[in-house]
């Protein structure tokens, strides 16, 4: 395969950035979730959307 070095750099940086960002937001979501009571986390409930105060 020609230009393999360029291809590996381009693809791995792209996919690597995606993975790192996904890990970052998943981790940050965990940290923040612990500090907010469950009834303020709407996606925990399946039907009750009555407490949307935005």
């Amino acid at each position: 395969m020609t230009h393999l070095g360029y291809l590996l750099v381009g693809w791995s940086v792209s996919l690597g950035c995606g993975v790192l960002y996904a890990m970052r937001i998943a981790f940050r979501g965990r940290v923040l979730s612990r500090q907010v009571p469950a009834d303020k986390r709407r996606w925990m409930q399946s039907s009750d959307h009555s407490n949307n105060d935005y």
């Binding site: 979501g29 500090q35 907010v36 303020k40 986390r41």
Partner: peptide, 23 residues
């Protein structure tokens, strides 16, 4: 699809930060 996934998670983070400021 990755964008949608990231948007949902990132939105929830923003939502939590907003709640936290409230708290």
């Amino acid at each position: 699809l990755f964008f949608v996934w990231a948007m949902i998670h990132r939105f929830r983070i923003g939502w939590l930060e907003h709640q936290l400021r409230d708290i």
